[in-house]
Design a protein around this nucleic acid. Structure first.
Lengths: 140, 140
DNA sequence: CGGGATCCTGCAAGATACTG
DNA sequence: CAGTATCTTGCAGGATCCCG
């Protein structure tokens, strides 16, 4: 299909450009997305703005420390905004910025792929772990 | 737009389903993709099958240890296949499996987003690091 | 060439306690 | 409530040497 060729062309460009350090968007941004909690938080905020403790509850197993840190990284990158309401016990609300919103679509694409491929991946893992000695031997 | 609503619905589903541990494709697969090297290797293999030392050269800064390990994880997940040619100095070729190929499109979506957003992200970081005290204070 | 086995280190991240 | 500060540790991952 034609789309596949276009894809290859883009991959060629990225490869040829080199992955050098932090000049490269691929590594720079992917490292963020790949972070254990970033995606979960983004998904949690996708629906509605959320307060700190709400996020703490909604994102399971995250520690306050990591939540704080991840939120600040996201804020620093401009993906979320932080709104402080000076109520008596102060309340802070986080919400997706337009930039953060724009990340949802590609993210959804990846998650869709993850869901569709999950069964196949699990099967492959099981087979591999079962001592899959079926090495692909090719004639020279 | 309608697409946005569809997006929200999907996010709702993922959220409601819970992110529990390793039953959840999101965490399970995203952890892989987010791995420092996985994406780079996938991109490197997108164009052509590649041998170990070629990958070692093409993916900068990766150690042999990590390359070996990442390749095996990818093989275990069924994203790449490993072909051994029994030549005198043995040569091993890695190539994307159909499953691995199918990951390229969503990955490309994310990388496209990364490229398009990189400038904005950098700007946001600079502003944040410049001691951005412009907290969003909202009236109670 | 394509790895495996070991050793060693730094830093990511959990636990706990304190504050405005 | 929404964090910060400090201490402590596990283990990811680099360096090095060896093997078929």
């Amino acid at each position: 299909m034609a789309a596949s060729n276009a894809l290859n062309t883009r991959f060629d460009e990225w490869r040829d450009r080199g992955f050098d350090a932090n000049a490269c968007p691929v590594r720079n941004v992917l490292d963020r997305i790949g972070d254990k909690w970033t995606t979960l938080i983004l998904v949690a905020l996708a629906a509605k703005p959320c307060r700190f403790s709400q996020l703490h509850r909604n994102v399971p197993d995250i520690s306050k420390r990591m939540l704080t840190q991840t939120l600040r990284d996201l804020q620093r990158d401009g993906l979320i905004t932080r709104h402080v309401f000076p109520t008596k016990p102060p309340s802070v609300e986080y919400r997706l910025s337009p930039l953060g919103q724009s990340a949802l679509a590609p993210l959804a694409g990846l998650i869709d792929w993850a869901e569709q491929s999950f069964a196949a991946i699990q099967a492959s893992r099981a087979q591999f772990d079962a001592g899959d000695t079926s090495e692909h031997l090719s004639a020279a």
